[in-house]
Design a protein around this nucleic acid. Structure first.
Lengths: 141, 141
DNA sequence: ATAGATGCAAAGTCTTTGCATCAAA
DNA sequence: TTTGATGCAAAGACTTTGCATCTAT
């Protein structure tokens, strides 16, 4: 978290309790929460923080390269403090979003680039299916 | 297009001029238009069609598996009549979305599945970068 | 004839913006 | 002190919904 303050300073951004709190939530969860989720969770520690601040802060952090934003087909965006390129898996039953820890897709960018005339910077990969828990629930029924 | 009527009938959906017109636009473009784009383009031939009908129709076609929907980070969804799993490339400069025709990623699902406890149905892959045209424009400047 | 689709307007989400106040540097 | 951040309310953008009318079957 100390590190977070440094990262903000490095971008010439002010270090505020709000920014630290939002980053902390994102840093400690694997749930890829939406702005609304973050807002609700933050009530416990920062009951006066407004939803607008959550949105503004997420935008600021995104532009600073400290969080990434994506949409898996829902009506709102989700956020992730892990800005490294990594695939996500979406359960079509419980709608949870998981990180996929694998090195198997490390080089798809370079693998694919010769096939195109694009200069590729990064990719986003989403796998859709059924998580372990929901698979078991279906077996029982 | 005759085929489209058959596909609708197969789903026990009525074959209406509105549905055919929307599918035709999606089928003939490679632009991956949003609902609003489709609505504007459709004015030329169907000036009385409402935006609500465009949304309802896209939802119907999506549920029937005749179009796919995705969000590349914009404020609206885009639609594609090509429902086969295929990667998209997004130009971060001109914001156009292109299909990537390649067989290099045909098997990433099976390649990755052993690394997870998910039962994967399909994937969505997006490459972000600079298209050929925008690369050239930058060289000149 | 009947079930279902369309079109319009209104409403519902999610997100952004304007502006006065407040806090970090 | 100065610059930028926060919080509130209002506005904006995209999408959905309710309902009367119309149309495909």
């Amino acid at each position: 978290m100390q590190q977070m303050a440094e990262l903000l300073k490095a971008q010439k951004l002010k270090v505020t309790p709000q920014r630290l709190a939002i980053f902390k939530i994102l840093y400690e969860t694997t749930e890829h929460p939406s702005a609304e989720h973050i807002y609700k969770r933050i009530q416990a520690t920062h009951p006066t923080m407004s939803l607008a601040t959550v949105y503004k802060t997420l935008d600021t952090l995104k532009k600073a390269g400290l969080v990434q934003e994506f949409n898996v087909g829902e009506d709102s965006f989700r956020y992730d403090a892990n800005v490294n390129t990594h695939p996500h898996m979406i359960c079509l039953t419980c709608h949870q979003v998981f990180d996929l820890h694998t090195d198997k897709l490390q080089h798809i960018k370079k693998y694919v680039e010769p096939e195109t005339d694009f200069d590729i910077d990064f990719e986003k990969v989403f796998f859709y299916g059924t998580c372990a828990k929901c698979q078991k629930a279906k077996e029982k029924s």
